[in-house]
Design a protein around this nucleic acid. Structure first.
Lengths: 105, 105
DNA sequence: GCTTATATTTAGTTGACACTTACGTAAGCG
DNA sequence: CGCTTACGTAAGTGTCAACTAAATATAAGC
């Protein structure tokens, strides 16, 4: 999840993820979408996205087809949700932490 | 929104955000929570969070009280949601982009 | 086997960023 | 007023991430 958040912090990678969100796409087609950077750069971004679990790779002959893995994105949403929903537990944690801090002084 | 995502990519800043999620806290108390880094580092993180709109600052005498601004977080959730919900519009955009790409070749 | 198409990998550069140390400033306090 | 408390800002450092160019891998077609 940490890796996914970091991966999404880069605009170019969000753009890539959008491209492969609804259908799988070969690396070339993805790279062609970006005129500002080289194919190599895109390939490296794809590796980051893959490592973060945000896309999956499937090989077909010499080509590699990428597609979004929505599962990881779901986890991210859940993580954000828990900033709200787990308020009670965190209130307890925070109180304990404050206590520890106080004792330290 | 871009700034918020980038701000949250850093674990320490997420931790800070959690601390001020339920109640406001002076900078010192926040810094005291982190024994591994200096107060200066925390101060800089707070600036990043403030710039990203994730926390608000309120001055009271010499102290500065920070509190999470949940609004920005809400926007982030909405952004993630739209990776799903706006599938149709994006399908159209993507088709147009593919068309442009094809013409370029 | 050689070539072409598709794509990654490696090496090297540059800029961003998290950090520390040092200093500045503003508010309260004796 | 001098001192302390509470905080930010400036300058400098090490590390990491994004990028390019060149080298490399792998499958297909002839």
């Amino acid at each position: 999840m940490d890796a996914a958040l970091k991966a999404l912090a880069e605009p170019r990678r969000r753009e890539i993820l959008r491209l492969v969100w609804l259908r799988e796409l070969p690396a070339t087609d993805i790279a062609d979408h970006f005129s500002e950077v080289t194919r190599s750069a895109i390939s490296q971004h794809l590796t980051v996205l893959k490592t973060a679990g945000l896309v999956t790779e499937r090989r077909e002959g010499t080509r590699r087809l990428y597609r979004a893995d929505r599962n990881e994105m779901k986890k991210l949403r859940k993580f954000l949700d828990e900033f709200w929903t787990s308020g009670l537990e965190r209130l307890r944690d925070v109180a304990e932490a404050a206590q520890r801090d106080k004792e330290k002084r």
